[in-house]
């Protein structure tokens, strides 16, 4: 305590990411109800409210919530169709699931005192590995051994093709890493930065500046939350195209 008093700041930017059991106790088993459960549950409830309650009237002329739901539907549907082509449309529900979960988790995480589930590497790694394994398995099921042709760049001169193949293989296996770390890192960084800057507010002179800075970064984080959900989804579509569209690229 003494050294913290001396430095003047008590900033714990990472405390907001601690997983805590909701109903007491210290041990976190795989089934324990934690704040992760709470905020994922809130996300599910919010998605259900938007997509089920909002559209329950099935109006030809949509209400406000219904048109938001339709907008999301059309947005993702167009993205899947444009990026993966016509064959990819049957994976649309899965892509939509990913997008909605990430978008709602990111946005809910921006509420003060909330917990951002997508800032945890555990969550994003699972999301990314599901995409990675799904795409790999799908690629081999659809194209057989020809899926490996993806690594053999036929448009390059023959001499450098092996080198390119090595690079392609490495970049293929780095995909889930960057896919997951990007999302978690962005969210974590943004929230930690807000927390760090907010911590400077203990210095009375700086507090007006801090309020402005936190507001600005909050706006940026709002943008980042949407853009990262979009990026994760569109990268999923891009990876899916490799499997569905064959090795012609």
């Amino acid at each position: 305590m003494a050294e913290e008093g001396a430095s003047g700041f008590q900033i714990h930017p990472m405390d907001q990411f601690i997983v805590k059991p909701l109903f007491g106790g210290d041990h976190i088993a795989w089934y324990t109800v934690t704040n992760v459960t709470l905020w994922m549950g809130i996300a599910v409830v919010a998605i259900a409210a938007l997509l089920m309650l909002g559209t329950r009237r099935r109006a030809i002329v949509p209400s406000r919530s219904q048109s938001v739901a339709e907008l999301l539907y059309g947005f993702i549907h167009n993205m899947v169709e444009e990026v993966t082509g016509h064959d990819g449309v049957k994976y649309f529900p899965y892509v939509m699931t990913l997008f909605l979960f990430i978008l709602f988790s990111n946005l809910l995480g921006l509420l003060p005192m909330s917990f951002t589930t997508t800032s945890h590497v555990a969550v994003t790694v699972v999301l990314a590995m599901m995409v990675f394994l799904g795409v790999t398995i799908l690629g081999f099921v659809k194209n057989g051994i020809g899926f490996l042709g993806m690594f053999w760049v036929t448009s390059a001169p023959l001499a450098i093709r092996p080198i390119l193949a090595v690079i392609e293989v490495i970049s293929y296996f780095v995909r889930p890493v960057s896919h997951s770390i990007r999302l978690a890192g962005n969210l974590m960084a943004g929230h930690a930065v807000i927390k760090v800057i907010a911590g400077f507010a203990t210095l009375a002179v700086a507090s007006p500046v801090v309020i402005g800075a936190v507001t600005a970064i909050y706006a940026l984080e709002l943008l980042v939350a949407c853009v990262q959900a979009y990026v994760f989804t569109i990268l999923t579509c891009v990876y899916l195209r490799d499997a569905v569209g064959g090795a012609h690229h």
């Binding site: 997983v19 976190i28 088993a29 795989w30 089934y31 324990t32 934690t34 992760v36 459960t37 994922m40 549950g41 996300a43 599910v44 998605i47 259900a48 997509l51 089920m52 559209t55 739901a69 539907y73 649309f92 529900p93 899965y94 939509m96 699931t97 909605l100 979960f101 589930t117 945890h120 555990a122 969550v123 699972v126 999301l127």
Partner: peptide, 23 residues
């Protein structure tokens, strides 16, 4: 394990909401 478990539950729930009702 805790996070992964609840994530899978959540994803399943959202997937069911989407495929059964919303989409």
């Amino acid at each position: 394990p805790n996070q992964i478990f609840w994530l899978l539950v959540t994803l399943t729930a959202i997937y069911l909401i989407l495929t059964r009702v919303a989409i």
